[in-house]
Amino acid sequence: MSATTPVPAPTAAYRITPARVLRSEWHKLWTVRSTWITLVTSAAFLLGVGILMGATYTSDGGDSDVDTVVLSLYGSQLGGVCLAVLGILVTAGEYATGMIRASMTAVPRRLPVLGAKAAVFTAVVFAVSFVTALITFLTAQIFFSGTDQAASLTDDGVLAAIAGNATGVTLLGVIALGLGAALRSVPGAVGAFIGGVMVLPEILGMLPYEAVETAVRYFPTQAAGALGSADPMPGAATPGAALFALFLWAAATLAVPALLLKRRDV
């Protein structure tokens, strides 16, 4: 037995490139079950709740003023939590298993690993969320036809809201991914996401200060909500401002672990 039996490729061709790190992260994502479980569960929530909303809807049920897209995609709140968990598993999960040591030994400059994780996650989660949201909207419309929630994809703002919904859950997931990378603990990051991203703004919103109320509009969950609405919601940020705010939140949550990554021991 010898390690020098002819190797298939000349070693000189082996080299790290950004595209290869992306490829590696893509491979990692699809070769663990948790990815499939969280993606399928999130899609099932979205579609299931959408069908439930459609099947139980009556025009005089008191929901007439709810935005059609918001109503159809109501399940994206639960589905979004699954996607956030996936984001956390992608980063903090590697610290839990120890895989991070192999990843960082292979790519010791470290930052490309985090960047590739965020890029692959964003692309996959957006694609899955957008397609599922489209299917869910169309399915819910089968039930909505003939009610005051009847709408079509070509109606003003509908397609943009469906894309906005997918963008919203994707960027919330990126925030979760960033929290996972910064905290390096799956339970810690799940707690921080639920407490800091989902619950905290709700509590702040109850405070009787107008400035706080205005500020809360630009918090991640609220901004994501505004993005997924076909008609502008009263008391919400405009879609453009919401997208910008959400993007900043995601960028900031990624910047923290990116800065720490270079300094901390693995």
């Binding site: 082996y14 590696s24 070769t31 663990v32 030994t105 790519v107």
Partner: peptide
């Protein structure tokens, strides 16, 4: 210390690392 994801197969673990350097499947 263990440096791998227990849910991934041996082949995919190595392949994921190999991809970072463009190391082929044959290797």
């Amino acid at each position: 210390a263990r440096s791998l994801h227990p849910g991934r197969s041996a082949f995919h673990h190595l392949m994921a690392l190999a991809h970072t350097h463009g190391i082929p499947r044959a290797r």
